[in-house]
Design a protein around this nucleic acid. Structure first.
Lengths: 133, 133
DNA sequence: AATAAAACCAACTAAATTAGTAGGAGATAA
DNA sequence: TTATCTCCTACTAATTTAGTTGGTTTTATT
């Protein structure tokens, strides 16, 4: 198991925006440059964060991004979910592609998967962006 | 975040071995056939489980695999770690490849990563193989 | 009005990882 | 000596991740 650069970059950028909370917007170019991240790649990461309504944007010269709410109201779990995608809905498949069981079945694999998911959720749920730097 | 087939197959196979605990060894061909998994792929998955000393093998005709200890003494966390690998030791890199910070630093990204890791560990630590079916 | 700086958008490429194959060698019971 | 098994290495195919390329649109500033 690993942490993708997507999450790493996204989190770092969100921490930058948190530091800038209540000030003017921060542009992608500034963040990318100072964090040493490919600007174009960061663009797509920001698209995810925006879809999840965690950030807002202003177009045009002088524009940029800012958090859509106070850092204390932004949950780390939301950020990770937005960046990495939720734990995939799980299915056991036979070789023929037929679904044998789903998330709601109570086989061992599903049970373990659900535990891991709630384990992650519980650990991040009450951690908010203002706690990071 | 997703659960690879490696984990799915590996867990299913371990559950099969647990059902067979105290009986004769189960061969790869039997497990692969009944679980509808590529035998050659399962072979490599079993190699990981063996390296982790979770299973033992007997070569030759009539041979096969069995758990190395009672299912109640096998932790699900051990299985997942063996199959999926531990959470990768984490580093922040600059574009030039220079390490900026490591697992022991206390930046936000590392803090989140460590939380996720302990979240998973805590959720699986006291779940053993005999609880699954 | 022209320009520059910004978000936004789509399609491509490169690298890495995952999932699986192919083709054996060596061990062992029947 | 043969069939059944583990074990080993090297390959391929598919998918995902990590970017790149080349724009369009929006907006403040000159």
């Amino acid at each position: 198991m690993k942490f993708s650069t997507k999450s790493t970059y996204g989190l770092r950028a969100m921490i930058r925006l948190a530091e800038n909370w209540k000030k003017e917007s921060l542009s992608l170019s500034v963040i990318a440059k100072s964090e040493n991240i490919s600007q174009k790649y960061l663009e797509r990461i920001f698209a995810r964060l925006k879809t999840a309504k965690l950030i807002e944007s202003e177009k045009g010269a002088g524009g940029g991004y800012k958090l859509s709410r106070s850092p204390s109201k932004i949950n780390i779990l939301e950020i990770i979910d937005a960046l990495e995608g939720k734990f995939a809905p799980f299915h056991c498949y036979t070789k023929s592609g037929k679904v044998v069981c789903s998330t709601s079945c109570n086989c061992g694999v599903t049970l373990v998967l659900n535990r891991i998911q709630t384990g992650i959720e519980d650990s991040l749920r009450n951690m908010s962006l203002n706690q990071l730097k």
